[in-house]
Amino acid sequence: MYERLRAYEGQAAANSGVGKDPVNEPMIRHWCEAMGDAGSAYPATAPATMLQVWTMGGLSGNAGRTGVYDELFALLEEAGYTSIVATDSEQEYFRPLRPGDRVTFDATIESVSPRKTTKLGTGYFVTTRMDVRVDGEPVGSHRFRILKYAPAAKRSAQSAAAKERAQRPRPVVNRDNAGFWEGVADGKLLIQRCDACRTPRFPWLPGCGSCGSAHWTAFEASGAGAVFSYVVMHHPPFPAFDPPYAVGLIELAEGVRMISNVVGVPYDKVRIGMPVELEFLRVDAELTLPVFRATGDTGAGASDSDSGSESDSNAAAHGKGR
Rank of each mutant, 00 (worst) to 15 (best):
M1R: 05
M1V: 14
Y2M: 08
L5I: 05
R6Y: 06
Y8P: 02
E9Q: 08
G17L: 06
V18K: 07
V18I: 15
D21I: 11
P22T: 06
P26W: 06
M27C: 06
I28D: 05
E33H: 03
A34R: 08
D37E: 10
G39K: 06
A41P: 00
P43V: 11
P43M: 09
T49N: 10
L51G: 06
L51W: 07
W54K: 14
G61Y: 14
G61I: 11
A63H: 13
T66Q: 15
D70A: 15
L72W: 10
L72V: 13
F73H: 08
E77L: 01
E77C: 09
G80C: 12
I84D: 03
A86Q: 12
R95T: 09
P96G: 04
L97M: 11
R98A: 14
G100R: 06
T104N: 05
E110Q: 05
P114S: 12
P114H: 14
P114E: 15
R115P: 00
K116I: 05
T117N: 10
T117C: 04
G121T: 06
F125T: 07
D131I: 00
D135V: 13
D135C: 09
D135R: 13
V139L: 09
R143Y: 02
P151I: 02
A152F: 04
A153W: 01
K154N: 10
A157R: 13
A160N: 15
K163A: 15
A166Q: 14
R168N: 08
N174Y: 12
D176A: 12
D176M: 07
G183I: 01
A185V: 01
D186P: 00
D186E: 14
G187P: 04
L190N: 03
D195H: 03
P200H: 07
P203S: 06
P203E: 07
S210Y: 02
C211Q: 04
W216M: 10
T217H: 04
G225M: 08
V231F: 00
M233W: 00
F238Q: 07
F238C: 03
F241H: 05
G248F: 01
I250F: 00
E251C: 04
L252D: 01
V256D: 00
M258P: 02
I259Q: 01
S260Q: 02
N261R: 03
V262Q: 00
V262S: 00
V263Q: 11
G264C: 11
V265A: 02
P275Q: 04
V276Q: 02
E277V: 09
L287A: 02
P290M: 08
P290Y: 09
V291F: 01
T295W: 01
G299S: 07
G299D: 11
A300Q: 01
A300G: 13
A302I: 09
S305D: 13
S305W: 13
S305H: 08
S305A: 15
D306E: 14
S307Y: 02
S307L: 13
D312G: 15
N314H: 02
A317L: 05
A317N: 10
H318P: 00
G321E: 08
R322C: 08
